[in-house]
């Protein structure tokens, strides 16, 4: 008999500028592996907010907790939701997470807005992937045929790195669908990635030049030469029976300086890489 499983590498590493300015890492990530589904979260605290490192960690924990409860309750392991159902449900999860964050701010006497962070959450189910997000960062997946594709569009304001956060005032009916994007990737997915914007220039094609049209553009394309070797690397580490901590430590090393772009990046860097494996039982 065969069994399908997901294996992961996930880590957050502090950016060079945050080290020199004595600011904590404001990114966070979590992966929850449950019976027949997984929940992965990447959060990126707002640079302008002094408690955003707390916000990103809390939001990551709350997302895992509420998503796990919801998937179990909805029975989506056997019945994959459609786009509309998932989007409505994703909004409900994020509203609940925001409420939990508000309660946390009250309990700890912290200004709620100072906990600002973006959030990307992906749920892998037997019949596909569910993804939702607020703000920037990137996410992509690899088809069974080996093609890497984007699964969200980051939200950017007028100037670079301007975005919205889970704490932003985006929750009334007129606005919420502009700022929360949810997508359903049905069918077989062989790998996926979630990353904070600190990793995007190293791992995605995000700012290329079209000389025919004399314009720059953002293809929002996961870069295969970045992801495919790492997918192989993760599989090998799993075969070597490395612990999750060992894998994550190696992943953190790679995110720190594994390519020249990663080495030069000054922002915090966070990435979750999930790879589907089939093993005999």
């Amino acid at each position: 008999m065969q069994q399908t499983d997901w294996i992961f590498a996930f880590a957050s590493v502090i950016g060079n500028s945050h080290i020199s300015e004595n600011i904590p890492c404001q990114d966070a990530c979590r992966v929850g592996v449950f019976d027949k589904f997984t929940v992965s979260v990447v959060t990126d605290g707002a640079g302008s907010c002094k408690n955003s490192h707390l916000g990103s960690n809390q939001v990551s924990d709350f997302c895992i907790y509420h998503a796990e409860k919801l998937i179990t309750r909805q029975g989506w392991v056997t019945e994959f939701p459609n786009q509309e159902v998932w989007h409505d449900t994703a909004k409900q999860i994020l509203i609940t997470v925001r409420k939990d964050l508000e309660n946390y701010s009250i309990e700890h006497d912290i200004d709620f807005k100072s906990l600002a962070c973006t959030v990307i959450m992906a749920i892998s189910l037997p019949d596909g992937l569910l993804i939702t997000h607020i703000g920037d960062g990137r996410a992509g997946y690899c088809t069974q045929e080996g093609q890497w594709l984007p699964m969200i569009t980051p939200f950017h304001g007028e100037v670079a790195n301007e975005t919205v956060f889970i704490t932003s005032d985006i929750w009334n009916d007129d606005l919420v669908d502009l700022y929360i994007e949810s997508n359903v990737i049905s069918g077989q997915v062989s790998a996926f990635c979630l990353l904070s914007d600190g990793c995007e220039k190293a791992a995605f094609e995000v700012n290329l030049y079209n000389s025919d049209k004399s314009i720059y553009y953002d293809p929002n394309r996961p870069f295969p030469a970045f992801f495919n070797p790492n997918r192989t690397g993760l599989t090998k580490l799993h075969e070597q029976l490395k612990s999750q901590d060992d894998i994550n430590n190696l992943w953190a090393e790679f995110l720190t300086a594994g390519t020249e772009k990663l080495r030069l990046e000054t922002d915090d860097k966070t990435m979750v890489l999930g790879v589907k494996i089939i093993q005999a039982i």
């Binding site: 700012n207 290329l208 720059y216 090393e253 790679f254 020249e260």
Partner: peptide, 13 residues
């Protein structure tokens, strides 16, 4: 081990 190449993105101005 982990390894990979990064794309040639232009920088924002």
């Amino acid at each position: 081990m982990f390894t990979g190449e990064s794309p040639d993105n232009y920088e924002q101005k």
